[in-house]
Amino acid sequence: MKRRMLGMVLGLCALPAQAAVNVFACEPEWAALVAELGGEQVSVYAATTARQDPHHIEARPSLIAKLRRADMLVCTGAELEAGWLPVLLRQSGNSRVQPGRPGHFMAAEQVERLEVPAVADRALGDLHMDGNPHVHTDPRRLLRIAEALGERLAAVDGANGDHYRARLAEFRARWQQAMAQWQRTAAPLRGVHVVSHHQDWVYLYDWLGLVEAARLEPKPGIPPSAAHLSSLTATLKDQPAGMVLRTPFQDARPAEWLATRTGMQVVVLPYTVGGSAAAGDLFALFDETVARLLEAAP
């Protein structure tokens, strides 16, 4: 009896230590996806928030400390984190999350990417040679990433493989249902012309059939200039667009400046989980995105 009691006590003590796979997610969308697929078996940390531009993050001490203890790293890749992730990896002293290890998962590598530049010349802006990295704005691509990530979680935490596969199957079913619903309600958006701040929404346009008429940045990564915005007003007079889209972390002024001169509406899309009060998880993110686009659509 005593022995059995002791065994139970020891078992309880051991639980928290082995319970959760520690996941370091570079962006909130991947933190949300890991939480969907891992449930109580994972403990996930998001390195950035929806109010931060994932291009411009510094390798802060707190991030290095977090990566040091991670069992797994889930990031976008395709050079989105080129300025800070390599520094974190080299300073973390953590072999489990280095490239080539199962604990190193890059979401953009799992799907086909758009806007892969044919010519590498920085006169064309801050190009990502692996293509546009903002893949999570297309729910079809997000599902493919979820499938790869579920398998990867099962590989990293083999003892709970069935748990991840079951959660993945359940997520897939719910996601496909939600996607069908979004596609139905978003049907009027097909062919609508929009202006974007940076090339954040290429995959969303690809999914919903929106047409990108112009960008506020003259070149990728170069902030909008007065000269470029003036030239846009002229272009948009000839070929009007319905709305100008920006993320919560982008400067509000260029979009508003252009909107007042062209009669367009400014739409702030949540961009990622946490980007608006309502966008609390991946489902709500797309609910909100589709709803805001429909509100502003002509």
Binding site: G100, P117, A118, A120, D121, R122, M129
Partner: peptide, 20 residues
């Protein structure tokens, strides 16, 4: 990773990496 590296090299060498 190595693909990334060679891609970064391309501007220096003036290569048309993706097409190549």
């Amino acid at each position: 990773m190595n693909r990334v590296i060679s891609a970064r090299l391309a501007p220096v060498l003036g290569l048309f990496f993706t097409t190549a």
